[in-house]
Design a protein around this nucleic acid. Sequence first.
DNA 1: GGGTATATTAAACGATCGTTTAAATAGTGC
DNA 2: GCACTATTTAAACGATCGTTTAATATACCC
Lengths: 217, 217
Amino acid sequence: MIKTTTGPGRPRRKDPDEVRQALIAAARDQFAQGSFKGVSVREIARAAGVNQAMVNYYFGDKRGLYEAMLQETIGPLIRTLEEAEARGEVARLEDLIPRHAATLAANPWLPNLIIREVLYGESEFRNLFIEKFASRVAAALRRAIDGGRDKGELRDDLDPRFGTLILFSLTIYPFVARPVVERAMGIPIDDAFAGRWSEQILQLLAPPKPPPEDEDP
Amino acid sequence: MIKTTTGPGRPRRKDPDEVRQALIAAARDQFAQGSFKGVSVREIARAAGVNQAMVNYYFGDKRGLYEAMLQETIGPLIRTLEEAEARGEVARLEDLIPRHAATLAANPWLPNLIIREVLYGESEFRNLFIEKFASRVAAALRRAIDGGRDKGELRDDLDPRFGTLILFSLTIYPFVARPVVERAMGIPIDDAFAGRWSEQILQLLAPPKPPPEDEDP
DNA sequence: GGGTATATTAAACGATCGTTTAAATAGTGC
DNA sequence: GCACTATTTAAACGATCGTTTAATATACCC
């Protein structure tokens, strides 16, 4: 029988990176549901199934864990976006918007982390976040808008700067406000939502199509 | 000369309601900038210029102060909206949207309080908030949308339920994301913004405009 | 002008927070 | 098998949190 001492020590060995990853994942979920101060290191460690001192051991302090979490969760998403952009896969709004909406829907922690970073006075790393995330998504949106505008695929009464803000608002808010949207508006935010919502957004930005019949592509 | 003792007691009398109001105002500003757990009772009391025990004396506990603050800050805005609605002043989207945007712009604490209530897992009083605020604004928006739709003032490819969500997203997000919008998109959120933004929103929802122009304001 | 309820204060309380520490175990190189 | 290092643990630390308390100065009533 294996003797388990109750005092300090090191009973079993896990892969150290496994502990690190468990902490990152737990922190990601916890910080998405609560504010930076509202989530305790003890909660995160318990959710990760590791001793709370591991936070300081691997990340220095709570802030270090938060920063590493942001880098290792949002970072890959940004990288994937930029690769897709480099391959020209998201040059058109018809491709970029559904992709962006699907990403927000597939990673439930993402919209909340974003909005907490964005919230005035709340973020611990807003500068970093704006540089590494918001400005790059904004740039991608802006490029797609400019491209669509040049090709006449966008309505002409749209200020391109406002266009970026419109797309940001429409893609992020519904996922952040999910409980309110579902309960006060009766709109279920389910698997099908991202697709239908993207279509609605694109329709809004499309040039007036139906009534007259003198259009030249 | 007035003798000021340093021990406990009651040095000077203020109007009790003045203390109460100071706490409400301080709580409103503090809770707009930080999360419920992120803001301390000591900070609020210091910002209000009163002893921290006054929070418990007047409101029972921190939660009571937060709840009273919500009631006494958002409550009047809702009441004013409903009165305007009863007088038929906001039946049309052209009236409701600029009014709503102006309210959000004129009360800098409002957008952040709203988004914190809306944030999943963050709110302390989401049920109350949804009942008393979100559902009423949503209803007003919905009525205006239905009215505009009946009169053909809205594009016909707009799902009315999505319409409400579109308006919610577009009116709240820019004010909440102010620092990001200004720095990552270069759009200043100043006094003129609410008006120009409202126009842009209304343009998006308007039906494809007729080719000739037969209207001049 | 004296008595009483109300408002205010500084201090203290217990709980929880993030972090540190000292001990102890498991792996690694020899 | 043995030293050595990395990893994990329970416990403790000081700080801060929300709240309570005891004391007391003020306003009000008669």
